[in-house]
Write a protein that binds this DNA or RNA. Structure first.
Lengths: 241, 241
DNA sequence: ACCTCCCCAGACGTCAGACATCTGATTACG
DNA sequence: CGTAATCAGATGTCTGACGTCTGGGGAGGT
């Protein structure tokens, strides 16, 4: 079953395999899995390896265990994922089976305001401001104001703004964006955004102000996104600690 | 270190201990942890148990490992946490150093509508509907409409609605709420909520429609919460997969 | 002096087996 | 018939070993 051709670690393969088996219905909802001893034999791995995989699945709420009783499949497969998983707007639109597009409105190197200095925690860097309208199947859905460190961008910048800013940053600068902290706010009025998205004032927009960090923990991108609430649905999977 | 007085499983205690050590700065950012052999000896647990704990911490992006090299602390301790961590509104208000309060508006057993049947995926259960205004330091901040399975509630219900509905459910019904899926939406107008929170129509509310699940995966609570956006700030920590 | 290749210590990954502890059901006893 | 003792089986923990990968240091040739 697990040939050595797969370079990934065994426990990762076990996680994937079990998820697939659960999703395919091989293990029914709320049903007991085989005991760890039998399951490890079944999969051809040691019980220790299997247990590491099960521990991850338990953390992800895919299964739950009762000491002395057994391991059970959580009712809701919960493949659902929301904005707690970071992805670019381009990807979000793609996942909705629509075609992402971009209208660049403004691109300029701006001086460091006090607020930006505070956010980026840097002094003598140059910041690029990008204002764009993002479209899905040609229809404007998000208004974006991005601020990014100049050093994180490649040279021929204008030609690459059609694509995801994430990709542009990651392909050029050797930095990979690892996580972001987003602040969510309803916006009852914002002239620029409303005009860009051609909304009337009876609608509300949803604003996501996001600080993006590289995997080393350096802030590389600050973006303000204004979403048309009638075009986007936002979910968050909230886990109890 | 780990006395048997703690009824929780060992690996849970190890996770907690390591998180505390990292947060307290005992293990510096981006620094190598002691090897698994040494660390297990240090903590007084077996390497297998330690590894299950480390596996969870790795999944939570608190640490990362390199095969053949070592285990490292991820740069961002990110003590910040947002709504991706599920907690009751009572707890949220408490964490803001304010005094939570409750005004019960309505409490009734309602018939199962088609929508509720669909949501709860159950047929012959009784559903209790609770409409409450939640206050912080006496000021109305959230309007809540909760639907909860009658079987999950204790008998003397009315007397316990001042406290968190989470606590009420968990203390009575042997069920613990494990996760929720929230849908976030800006609300430009909602008569009941606006009246309850005495807002004017120029403001926006933020609506969280949440399906709460027990650890076994059964949906036990559906709640619609309307937050005054001027009183609440919502953050989400978004992680790249 | 420099580069390359090889080797090796040490780290994480995996394995095998054993014992500990908990739970639910069955059985024995009053 | 009810209660307590017992037991099988499951997850939790421990021990020791070996596999595999990585980075660095040393031997050797240029």
């Amino acid at each position: 079953m697990f040939v050595k051709k797969d370079p990934r670690h065994l426990y990762v393969q076990v996680i994937e395999r079990l998820k697939k088996d659960i999703e395919s219905g091989l293990f029914q909802e709320h049903e007991r899995l085989p005991s760890e001893a039998k399951l490890s034999e079944l999969l051809g791995v040691s019980r220790a390896t299997l247990r590491e995989a099960l521990r991850v699945l338990e953390e992800e709420k895919v299964i739950f265990r009762k000491h002395g009783v057994g391991t059970f499949v959580t009712s809701q497969p919960m493949v659902l994922s929301g904005i707690e998983q970071l992805s670019s707007i381009t990807t979000m639109i793609h996942n909705a089976n629509m075609e992402p597009g971009t209208i660049v409105q403004n691109l300029s190197i701006i001086p460091l305001t006090e607020e930006l200095t505070e956010r980026f925690k840097t002094n003598d860097k140059k910041i690029v401001q990008i204002k764009r309208i993002r479209t899905a199947d040609g229809e404007p859905v998000v208004y974006c104001v991005d601020h990014v460190l100049l050093e994180c961008l490649p040279d021929g910048l204008e030609s690459q703004l059609d694509a995801s800013l994430f990709d542009t940053i990651e392909r050029s600068g050797m930095t990979r964006i690892g996580q972001a902290v987003a602040e969510i706010e309803p916006i009852s009025y914002h002239p620029e955004a409303f005009k860009a998205l051609s909304c009337d004032t009876s609608q509300s927009l949803l604003s996501l102000s996001q600080e993006h960090f590289s995997e080393e923990g350096k802030m590389v991108l600050y973006s303000e996104n204004y979403f048309r609430a009638d075009k986007f649905k936002f979910h968050v999977v909230r886990r109890r600690v």
